[in-house]
């Protein structure tokens, strides 16, 4: 699994400070390979979300990051963003369109796909998260668990090769959390799961990276 060909994320000495001076990342070195399920754990404010935002070029520094062999900048961005799907922590940020259909169609339409292809992808993505009947539903009429599923569908419709989930179990009740774990287990795509739900990470990931104060403090294989 660990040959050069299948390396999809390469980060070298990534240091990032927010404009207000907060040092969020401090010398991160990280490689991620195709097919891995990586857990990214650490306390609040450790820099997990900041690191994830570097993986699709939302945040940038000089050439410390390479995704699928591409530098996330300029004309590479549309391609990178179609290959890297980020599901944000708060579904109310992720779902910004009036109906589920529009939300799930947003990515594919931005990629410039044709109407029939978009329709097919939306249908498939909603089916994959067992929300087929939700295409006309409005986000504020859905439960947190349902919103989370539609959020996931909203990036699945872009057929990402790397799926990134930021605190996927936040605000879920035990049932919702359980069915989310089952859903993610069934997905055959490279995943990075950030959060502090260790149990969920243990169940879904083979590799756990622990970060604290912007530094990687451990990188271990589990369930091997």
């Amino acid at each position: 699994m660990t040959n050069i060909e299948s390396k999809i994320v390469e980060i070298r000495k990534l240091t990032y400070a927010y404009p207000d001076g907060t040092m969020a990342l401090d010398g991160i070195d990280l490689d991620i390979f195709e097919g891995e399920n990586v857990g990214l754990v650490g306390p609040n404010g450790a820099g997990k979300s900041t690191l994830l935002l570097h993986l699709n070029g939302i945040l940038r520094t000089d050439s410390a990051v390479s995704i699928f062999g591409l530098t996330p900048e300029g004309s590479n961005l549309p391609l990178i963003r179609s290959m890297v799907g980020i599901v944000f922590q708060d579904p109310d940020d992720q779902l910004f369109m009036p109906t589920s259909f529009d939300d799930v169609a947003f990515g594919p339409l931005s990629m410039g796909l044709g109407a029939d292809e978009v329709r097919a992808r939306v249908e498939k993505a909603l089916l994959d998260v067992s929300m087929s009947d939700a295409s006309d539903r409005i986000a504020h009429h859905m439960s947190v668990g349902e919103k989370r599923r539609v959020s996931i569908a909203s990036v699945l419709s872009m057929n990402p090769r790397l799926l990134i989930l930021d605190e996927p179990s936040a605000n879920l009740d035990p049932d919702g959390r359980r069915s989310l774990i089952e859903l993610l287990k069934g997905m055959n795509v490279t995943k990075i799961i950030a959060g502090h739900d260790l149990e969920l990470v243990n169940e879904l990931c083979q590799r756990v990276i622990r970060i604290d104060a912007g530094k990687i403090v451990s990188d271990t294989l589990i369930n091997a």
């Binding site: 549309p78 799907g85 109310d92 992720q94 169609a105 947003f106 990515g107 931005s110």
Partner: peptide, 24 residues
């Protein structure tokens, strides 16, 4: 801040200044 995060979410899914929808 909500506005900021929503904008990030939009950019992450390829937003380029136009909101596109399908007419159904």
């Amino acid at each position: 801040e909500r506005g900021e995060r929503v904008y990030l979410a939009m950019c992450s899914r390829g937003f380029d200044g136009t909101v596109r929808t399908l007419n159904r």
